[in-house]
Design a protein around this nucleic acid. Structure first.
Lengths: 343, 343
DNA sequence: CTGAAAGCGCTAACAG
DNA sequence: CTGTTAGCGCTTTCAG
């Protein structure tokens, strides 16, 4: 066992610098009002001893932990099939690091996990939480709200959180969808189909709404329900081809499904984009650039989403932000259409 | 601000149950030797008050944190382009959760981050560390070793850690590479090329060694250095085609590069697998299944790798394991060849 | 501006 | 088996 050499304490530093613990504490915490001479002496002692504050002791009195929980609720493997997750984490991590906060990762798969997570949050180990991939009717938000922990959601939740509303950050799914469909329209396509995502997620619903905004009154058979997986995309595409052989474009609610659609289209001898133009959503790089042809798709700035969520939460923790003073607490990030060969 | 109702303390529970704090502590920590009658009373009080132990206070005295740092050293975006990372995390998370430990995630991108991480580890916030994606000459291991923290590496490090060696978990990169090449040989291919990974990572070196084990004395021009990225794969494939137009198979050190190679091959009018058979490595699902044709590749059980690392570390923390008693502390996980259409 | 003193909530001897 | 008693290392009034 690697013996942890007993780390120096405040006491030790104080002794070495010839001052009191209080003074060392002040210097270490960057508090003003310590004569420069002394401060300097303390800093040197800290340096020489390699002193690092004991976070547990500090938390015990300050009740702050400088740690934030990141909760990813993903029963399915979707998160694990795409780099999304990693991107968001990276954004969060950067921002957290910049503010000297730690990232405690909580991955949940089933209801049991929810209970565990609820307990953890109630246990006051972290100052706040960042939550992702919620599905409609997920019990987690309730648990969190009960724990009374400041929280920011990634993706618009399906409930408004009552009183002050919930804070969240989301991409402009609806607007992005509109752009995608309009692009198809601009290409002269008329029979535009849509493969939806899993409709128990608001992102899927919003994208569908965007599609409808532009295609109001379109043939309802042009909409097929998918589930965000490639297989689901294939199935939906088959159904679509079956019902409307004359379709000339399809907008899939994500790239994974668009890739599946591409395969089915090829299988049926339809050329892309000549016969059928295809647009995806997400701009999931390893997929979108790798398909044949490469995918035209709607890009969202995932990393920025993570950063923004974090900034919002941190501000709330500082007491600086408006945690929930009337009005919506949602922030919507813009999307951009990325043109490649498929449409 | 959500007011955190002052959480009940041990003291409160003790009062309510009419016992001493020590007794409550014993019950809460599952220690034996408390008469069932009392224990029951304590449990009820805990329940009624919704008591949750204050981890900070506990850590302060036990010097345990029940938290493990997971460090991902990834200056490049590679990790973020594939689901690898998520898979490992999931394995780790599951195992950690099962043992009531928390996962503190530390993402690093540059040298500055290393310093920060070093300080964090030295700060004694976590009981151990799990480290990934090390590149040769990374300064991190030194910092960690200096912090004297029990650590398990993901992927064979390039140095042996001195005395007792380092504990690590890795896939059988060399064996997997051998299998891939033998498979190609079995297909009757003779001019087999290899696109290596970034040779500053042991995985790339080991895969190259595996290739050489089987193709000893092969034309050295059949080996082209890549870097694990699709673009690198394309470049390497072009070079290969240029130098050895007669090649009839290629083994790429990962699927991303294999996908790149596939594109170049198609571009040059070579049919896969008829003219050139292609094998990848990793079985990175969204890629391997999506390419045209789908990729034959070497699969590694990423999630299990994560679990195993965690188990190893936890055992070491329990004092149960042999942290470093002579001999190698590496565990190698088997790989399996997954046959698809490309070879 | 600096020091002394009082805990934060919990565990771990040590008595009883 | 159970209670008493010390602290763990740090921040924070409160005097000086």
């Amino acid at each position: 066992m690697t013996d942890t050499a007993p780390r120096p304490t405040l006491e030790a530093v104080a002794a070495r610098a010839g001052v009191s613990r209080a003074t060392v504490s002040r210097v270490v915490n960057g508090s003003h009002g310590v004569r420069e001479r002394l401060a300097e002496r303390v800093r040197r002692a800290v340096e020489e001893l390699g002193y690092v504050p004991n976070q547990a002791a500090r938390s015990l009195v300050t009740k702050r932990h400088d740690a934030v929980a990141v909760i990813v609720a993903e029963p399915e493997t979707r998160v694990f099939a795409d780099p999304f997750f990693a991107r968001q984490l990276r954004g969060i991590s950067k921002e957290l690091t910049a503010h000297d906060n730690q990232l405690v990762l909580l991955l949940t798969e089933d209801r049991d996990d929810h209970v565990r997570v609820g307990r953890y949050l109630a246990g006051g180990h972290v100052d706040g939480a960042l939550v992702f991939s919620l599905h409609i009717d997920d019990p987690l938000p309730q648990l969190i709200q009960r724990a009374g922990l400041p929280t920011v959601y990634g993706g618009r939740p399906d409930w408004n959180g009552g009183q002050g509303g919930v804070s969240y950050v989301d991409s402009d799914n609806r607007g992005g969808a509109r752009d995608a469909v309009r692009h198809l329209l601009g290409l002269g396509r008329a029979r535009i189909a849509h493969i939806t995502g899993a409709l128990d997620q608001t992102a899927a619903v919003d994208r569908l709404d965007g599609f409808r905004d532009v295609m109001a009154g379109a043939d309802p058979r042009l909409v097929a329900e998918g589930d965000f997986t490639p297989a689901g995309g294939e199935r939906a595409m088959r159904r679509l081809l079956d019902r409307c052989p004359d379709l000339d474009a399809v907008f899939a609610a994500n790239d994974l499904m668009a890739a599946g659609a591409l395969r089915v289209l090829r299988e049926h001898g339809r050329r892309v984009p000549d016969d059928v133009a295809v647009v995806g959503f997400d701009d999931m790089l390893p997929i979108a650039e790798q398909t044949d042809p490469p995918l035209t798709t709607v890009r969202q700035d995932i990393e920025e989403m993570g950063r923004l969520m974090t900034r919002l939460l941190l501000r709330e923790l500082d007491g600086t932000g408006t945690p929930s003073e009337g009005g919506s607490d949602g922030v919507i990030l813009p999307t951009t259409l990325v043109r490649r060969a498929s449409a």
